[in-house]
Amino acid sequence: MNLLLVNIVLALVWGAVTASFAPGNLLFGFVLGFLCLWLVRDRFNPRNFHRPGRALGLAGLFLLELCLSAGRVARDTLRPKMTFRPAIIAFPLEVQKEGEIMLLANLISLTPGTLSVDVSTDRSTLYIHAMDVDDPDALRQEIRDGFERRILDVME
């Protein structure tokens, strides 16, 4: 049974019972539902209960990377001599599901200095345009450790 859906339904039930669908109230209902499900957690896979925390962490990462990337773009744009050296690099994918690939591509596009260009037809490689690359392997390692791992943690 998909726990997230059950939690959402519980939040809606709370909203109906208290006769108010204001976002704050629904959020409170969601938290209450989460606590109730946590009380009967031995019936379910314990990994699921860490997911909201990890999902929030992922969202926070999104925002942080966006700010950092904008700062990086600012620095590179305003410099009088353009000293960056771009390249298109291939990144072998570990995530295989469509949703995860989309999340990864989006996260990469928001990261300082990288933009996802295309995914190979057999979903084995993601091609990324990087603004300033000195060591392609280091970049691949960074993406693999930073983003792919977190996305796998949240979605799997």
Binding site: P92, S120, T121, D122, R123, V133, P136, D137
Partner: peptide
């Protein structure tokens, strides 16, 4: 169709 790049063929040096 876009072919993937197998691990051995990745560009390692910039």
């Amino acid at each position: 169709k876009l072919t993937g790049t197998p691990v051995e063929d990745l560009r390692r040096d910039a």
